[in-house]
Design a protein around this nucleic acid. Structure first.
Lengths: 215, 215
DNA sequence: TCAAAAGTGTTCCGAATACACCCATGA
DNA sequence: TCATGGGTGTATTCGGAACACTTTTGA
């Protein structure tokens, strides 16, 4: 490893997922400058000398969405030689997860919008740079992690009902689940709050909370 | 994302795993310059402007081990602010897998050596920079991927016996497996070559090959 | 003929799947 | 009272864990 000077820039881009309207959604911002002016892209920042990539990702999130303290994990580093037409730039991509309540209450700053992930995947919305690739990679990771981790909980508020949580699983996995079996699978990981969610034209559902530590 | 000039260097480090003497082994090189002179570290290169991180990883492998065309996958990008005392440097880490035959036949170039991963984990061998962290992260990933992927096959020659392959699984998982069950699990993914491995003081074992495509 | 490791068939168990049913509410 | 979705118990299936056994070689 030698440190001859390189002319390589380092960006940190963030893929913020949430679920609203029973769809996986992603936060985008509109580019105000060339190249790709007026196209959408992932919120990103240039890595500063005195911050870690993770801090840069948090900064980007904070700037664009006002969000703090949400699930954040490094996704992949994209480094195609021509991914940025201006200059050689690598992008350390992170993905973040939040429940829509938190996101909508802190409201997005101006040019940021929430779009269904499917509209990117199917090409209805085109993204600048190689950001579509980043989105696809992130969706893949998300799908892969659902079944063996607790990430699904990141998409619901602290208190939630099991039907709500089941819906999240179904959206992330892309398939319907059997109610009874889902409950058996999830019940060791949650605990009742004692509260109910009422007001529906059917039986009220119990509210649950994630168990802090599996026994 | 803006492209104000940064003074951030980009390195690509490679964690090459193999298995010899029934132990997981890692290729290291000795540093010839300050800082950390004479300490061991992972083989790495400085990312060039006209190459992708993956190409840089391949170049590093080629330089240090002569190896081509082996399993290579991006691991993680390490970016602590003070991970390199000389200047701000991020490291895009890759990990590579090879069977020992290939590695030993193409022999390591001078300062490169093969050491048991455990000697790094338990502190008997100290590495420069944050490379111990990279090693631990790589071992974690390796353990995680064994059960749901085919990476174990990368550690055996093209033709191998099931006891050989089982040993690889045991080393990667860190636990003993039951012969009969291991065979049932693995048999749909392999096919017999028709050859046998003879010369042992016990029943000869059949040679197998990885099935190209699962039916 | 014996030790050592290769190789195989069968039982056992628990978790995931599938099915069938009851419950509480607002309209 | 009924449509709607919440909630639960039980049978069934399947794959992994565990066990017991036979086979083939060199020494």
């Amino acid at each position: 490893m030698n440190t001859k000077h390189q002319k390589i820039s380092v960006a940190v881009d963030v893929l913020l997922f949430t679920i609203t309207d029973d769809k996986l959604q992603i936060v985008l911002t509109k580019r105000s400058a060339e190249p790709f002016r007026d196209m959408y892209c992932l919120p990103g920042v240039s890595l500063r000398e005195n911050e870690t990539p993770e801090e840069a990702a948090e900064r980007s999130l904070k700037e664009r969405t006002g969000l703090n303290d949400i699930y954040l994990e490094q996704l992949y580093t994209f480094g195609d030689v021509d991914r940025d037409p201006r200059s050689r730039t690598i992008s350390i991509a992170y993905y973040a997860l939040t429940d829509p309540e938190k996101l909508l209450s802190s409201k997005l700053t101006e040019p940021a919008i929430l779009v269904p992930a499917d509209k990117i995947s199917n090409g209805r919305i085109k993204l600048a740079f190689d950001h579509k690739k980043i989105v696809e990679y992130g969706r893949m990771r998300l799908r892969g992690k659902v079944s063996y981790s607790d990430i699904a909980f990141e998409f619901v508020p602290e208190d939630f009902t099991l039907p709500q949580l089941q819906k999240v699983y179904e959206i992330l996995l892309g398939e319907e689940l059997y109610k009874a079996n889902f409950r058996k699978m999830i019940s060791p990981r949650v605990e009742e709050t004692g509260e109910m969610l009422t007001g529906m034209a059917h039986r009220p559902s119990r509210l649950y909370r994630k168990k802090s530590r599996q026994d």
